[in-house]
Amino acid sequence: MYEPKIIGFLCNWCSYRGADTAGMARMKYPPNVKIIRVPCSGRISPELVLRCFREGADGVMVLGCHIGDCHYANGNHRTAKRMAILRQLLEYNGIEAQRLCVDWVSAAEGEKFATLIASFTEQVRQLAPFVEIMQ
């Protein structure tokens, strides 16, 4: 059993507030995710995700507002398109797509946030450490 290192990109308006909600309700979830707050999930370019992997992350989470709820109207439309393709591309490079989690968490969904982190951490833990498969 190893402790996976996970980077989480959370959008400021929904998912980060969702994390706050989870914290205020004192929900428990694994400490593996390092959270980076970004203005919008549409900001997360594929380069950022790949760089996380190169720096040794075992998994990357990109969480944004639900489709239709974006603070910037359609920022997360870009996330949806881009990340769907990136997941495929990771697959084509022999990297498990399960290492990249794309999901939508609203400010009220503290519980969803906690369960999502727990399940994703477990999911990544099942895979070999990223640096090992890349050797």
Binding site: P46, E47, L50, R51, F53, R54, I85, L86, L89, L90, Y92, N93, I95, M134
Partner: peptide, 27 residues
């Protein structure tokens, strides 16, 4: 983006995995 030091380092072959050069270009 392939000339940006943040993603593709100068003076190093793309081999350090994953090959950001090739995946970024494919993306």
């Amino acid at each position: 983006a392939l000339e940006d030091e943040k993603w593709v380092e100068t003076g190093r072959l793309p081999l350090p995995n994953p090959s950001l050069y090739h995946i970024i270009r494919a993306m």
